[in-house]
Design a protein around this nucleic acid. Structure first.
Lengths: 148, 148
DNA sequence: CAGTATCCAGCTAGATACTG
DNA sequence: CAGTATCTAGCTGGATACTG
């Protein structure tokens, strides 16, 4: 009956099977793959669902075209963007849809799985933006202490 | 009066100042730094507060010694562990305490700032462990489709 | 115990040129 | 438009040896 108990039991079960602390565990490799700046930003872009960027609300998937993503993620190279998108597609986090127009139109959209990761990842981006000042202050302090 | 409104307003303000989508924004560099496997695992270790690994409960900081961390994060090299710890210390996410015993005893402990990032990061590790099966299935499917 | 120092293989990722 | 292909500088990170 309890979906809460079910969820907790399921999580516990999977945590017994997979442990990212172990070098050989597949989840360690997965953690490595998703611990990536471009992954975080692609997910943030495709999941941001327009202006309501409230971090406490899971956004709708926002389909975006390749060139839109390239523009949004300033500084990304074609290579890294394509590579990141291919990885995420292979892992089932997003779909790649090709419309046979001329020239061709390619759209990327988060799957439910991708949306679930987005729910986690966007907090990372938000955290970085929210605590940048604090971190910067610590760096100044730390560097000053070392210099003495 | 509402702390909720205050928090939201504060977040919105900071999001106007910092935008990790911009290559030049300091928060982009911060995002890059924290989007790291070893950062995720060090935080997970120092914040896991013993056996109650329930991802919905923020753990107490768990002080750990260098060698404990090295054992916990299987596969980490001395270089990467030390480097990661130094970065996190400089950014104010953890403290490094040296007890002048013989031989010396060094303890690492999350600060409040580090604990707040841990609150976000541990979901990443949990997600990787919880969705590994699904991702693996997608890969098989995807690779099969490509092979045809 | 908790590092530091050094070397180097290999991967990452940017730049550039080209294409259906 | 949305890539692919190629080359390469340089950074990452592992291995190894040494130290207060």
């Amino acid at each position: 009956m309890g979906t809460t108990e079910d969820k907790l039991a399921e999580r516990a079960r999977q945590r017994r099977e997979y442990d990212a602390f172990l070098a050989q565990c597949p989840s360690r490799q997965l953690l490595d793959r998703i611990s990536d700046k471009w992954v975080a930003l692609v997910l943030a872009a495709l999941g941001s669902g327009g202006p309501h960027a409230d971090p406490d609300v899971v956004g709708e998937p926002t389909p975006m075209r390749y060139s839109e993503l390239a523009r949004r993620l300033s500084g990304v190279s074609q290579k890294m963007l394509t590579q990141t998108l291919r990885h995420l597609e292979r892992d089932g986090l997003l779909t790649r849809t090709v419309e046979p127009t001329v020239p061709v139109t390619v759209t990327y959209e988060l799957t439910d799985l991708g949306l679930s990761l987005h729910g986690v990842m966007r907090h990372l981006k938000t955290w970085a933006e929210a605590h940048m000042d604090e971190v910067a202050a610590h760096r100044v302090e730390h560097d000053a202490a070392v210099a003495v």
